[in-house]
Design a binder for these strands. Structure first.
Lengths: 143, 143
DNA sequence: TTATTGTGACTACAGTTGTAAACTAATAAG
DNA sequence: CTTATTAGTTTACAACTGTAGTCACAATAA
């Protein structure tokens, strides 16, 4: 999973990011407690993850005296978009449509979400091609 | 990335799967050549990946004499759906809508794909909730 | 001012992944 | 039948991940 700056954020790091995004900013204590409650992780585990996220510049440390504050450097929306694009880049272009269909069916979406998607689709329909080509192999085989 | 049987298929393995899905069935020679052309991999690399896929039961070996044939055991559509679900499971439920919107905007979709998505959305709109809750943390904080 | 504790940094370690070499067994060529 | 070639199996190895212990230092309490 890639984040907005194209750094890979691993699954466990992703969980920490979600907490930080939701809280807006947090101390390590808050994160340690949240992760302990949510995942049963030991304090060390959360600290390590937090550190790796700082190294990857997905999170930054603020403050001058000791209980530092941690804030996200990368945005949630952008990171999720990047992760999603990363996934779709690994699949056959021809299958994107039906995969999206599956996702839409299996997720809860609000009325506003749906209206938004409908608007986007209506717009996109204007210039949509008849067919999308398979891009899995060199040559013109199709899956 | 999880496949249909809930086994993790890694990024490079995914590339091999795409080739096998597209070809329908293939010999190792065909795969080695395709992967070499597509990714510049050495024969060994493709062999290793193919082996791991067999162990994971994502691919099976057919035939009784030596140039064996390899065929997918897991379906492409199901595997992609599983991978997509896996991704969305790691993100905030509240953000699914806008992430899907981003994906739709950035991908090529055929007229038929779009029509299908529109039909699904119309149906889904009938029972859509006003709001989707954030599920990132215990308690009712929202991101 | 010293003892205690909370917070951050460093180390650890097994399992997975990406990439490939080496080895072995089967088949084809001479 | 022997040799060369190809296909399949084992081994390798560094980087990355998940998970966590230990050490050092700053803040606080005694």
């Amino acid at each position: 999973m890639k984040d907005a700056k194209n750094v890979t954020i691993t699954d466990s790091e992703w969980i920490v990011m979600r907490a930080i995004w939701t809280m807006g900013h947090a101390t390590s204590r808050e994160l340690i407690d949240a992760m302990n409650e949510l995942e049963g992780w030991s304090a060390s585990t959360t600290k390590t993850l937090l550190h790796r996220l700082i190294q990857k510049q997905a999170v930054a440390q603020y403050g001058d005296s000791r209980p530092f504050t941690y804030k996200p450097v990368v945005g949630e929306k952008e990171s999720m978009a990047a992760a999603a694009d990363d996934l779709f880049d690994h699949m056959c272009a021809m299958r994107a449509g039906s995969t999206i269909a599956g996702v839409i069916q299996s997720r809860e979406l609000s009325r506003a979400d749906i209206a938004n998607l409908q608007a986007i689709l209506a717009e996109k329909a204007k210039t949509a091609p008849e067919e999308v080509q398979c891009n899995c192999l060199p040559g013109d085989q199709t899956c």
